[in-house]
Nucleic acid binder design. Structure first.
Lengths: 272, 272
DNA sequence: CGAATAGTGTCTGTAAGACACTATTCC
DNA sequence: GGAATAGTGTCTTACAGACACTATTCG
């Protein structure tokens, strides 16, 4: 920030409260895989509006400008991390977090004009969540149980368990983003703990995409993409529960993009 | 919105002004192609802060809650359209608009805490812009002249003509998004006016990606992707300015995604 | 042993890129 | 005519998907 003529006087005479009230919240779509099913972290709201409804964890961004130089302002991503930590107790680092989109339609919150910045998180299997301050409960909920209008598989709505606000829409957008990110990025590895096997990685793809993949071809493809995974030289201690040889173990590679990508099969439909 | 126990009393006693002041703005990255160069729409700020600096067109979202039922609240996308129309006089419909990302780091605006929702617009060649209310000037500026740290080609920074706020970063993100969207979506057609020739479309790709493409292979590829373009049956009135036969004319097809995609050549670098 | 799984070999169809070539139009 | 461009043909290489097969381990 550089000084400019008239800038200081302008700022001194500036009254932020002259602006109409808006609030900014951060909501987080946290996805994980449990028991071979895609789950999302939800909280049951303990305060109005929508008290008792299930919703994405989220809350207001701390925006108080520092009085006497004290700074209580909070980054958007920082607010998302805080919300996530409140429910899961997770330290950042184990969880991949990225901005999803911002939702600001008038009337989406009955209290006032609220602009919500949604974040998308990919987590490995985590312990059961605990309810945060404003929540009666928190739980990992199977995405399939929410009966969303699924853009990938053509499920019928109607069985939709209603989420608060426009959170069903936000979740749907997050799922779309997740499915598409698996194609072009190595983010599937964010759903597993290191070290992992190729089969575990394939299970992630099959769960998120909702369709079986060919084991042999998947194996070859993953190993052929430079930087996707990197061998540890180790293998599992024992074979699978239902038989089979020990599998080699891998950790994340250094690629940030998959090239060439791992395209979803049978995606021709729904393109128009 | 359904009624819930205690909800109404809660809302009646709710005081929105108890919240700390935040402002929400919308900034628009508008890209177009003029004279074979990628241009972005910029305004020269006529008011502090950063008076005299160039910036993305943008402004505060109208969030006043309707007194006596009067509604002056504004959608985020609506605000972006308004900002775009102020400078270009364009009616929506000719311009593709999508949300880019939201920027909310504390201190990014010296006045107060400002959360900015950035939009990305693709426009065909438009007339020279006019300065809006808060701007001294408005102009199409060649992106190359801004000397951004270009993520695609490895230009060196230092020659960066400084944009106000964090707009250089927003612009960079918009360019990245644009380059990548050309791969998977038919949005290149948003840069041309219908009807168009395959060569015009190729010029869009070459300009946005900054590298020459093989004319023959590009031609075949575009026609092979279902729904990308659709023939009008017509041809241009005359050949090119420097010779060549008349070209067939096309309009946009009905595909929303390109399958298979048109991947950028030589993208292996910069992946790690 | 029988079943399931890890990992590899191989073949086929499709598509991208390189190159060549023809036809058309402008200067 | 010479140069530039539109559009097509063809060859090579790469890769995705289908299928087959071996080796290993569990129950």
């Amino acid at each position: 920030m550089q000084d400019r003529p008239g800038e200081e006087e302008f700022l001194a005479s500036y009254d932020p409260r002259a602006f109409p009230p808006v609030a900014v919240t951060v909501d987080v779509v946290t996805l994980t895989i449990r028991d071979g099913q895609l789950h999302v972290l939800l909280v049951q709201r303990g305060v109005p509006p929508f008290r008792g409804s299930w919703a994405l964890p989220g809350g207001f961004v701390k925006t108080r400008p520092g009085a006497e130089g004290e700074r209580v302002e909070e980054d958007l991503a920082g607010a998302a991390i805080r919300e996530l930590a409140e429910e899961t107790g997770q330290q950042p680092g184990r969880v991949h977090l990225e901005q999803l989109a911002t939702y600001g339609a008038p009337g989406r919150d009955p209290r006032m004009r609220v602009i919500s910045v949604a974040y998308l998180a990919f987590a490995p299997e985590l312990p059961d969540p605990r309810a945060g301050s404003d929540a009666q409960a928190a739980a990992w909920v199977p995405v399939a149980a929410l009966g969303l209008a699924d853009n990938a598989a053509g499920q019928r709505p109607g069985t939709t368990r209603k989420l608060a606000f426009d959170h069903a829409r936000i979740l749907t957008d997050g799922l779309d983003r997740a499915r598409s990110k698996l194609e072009y990025t190595p983010l599937a590895t964010a759903f597993v703990t290191e070290p992992f096997t190729i089969s575990e990685l394939r299970a992630v793809y099959e769960t998120v995409w909702g369709e079986p993949l060919h084991a042999g071809n998947f194996h070859r493809k993953v190993l052929s993409v430079p930087g996707f995974v990197e061998s540890t030289g180790e293998t599992t201690e024992s074979g699978g529960a239902r038989g089979g040889p020990r599998a080699r173990l891998y950790r994340r590679g250094d690629a940030r993009l998959l090239h060439p990508p791992l395209l979803r099969p049978g995606q021709e439909e729904g393109i128009r």
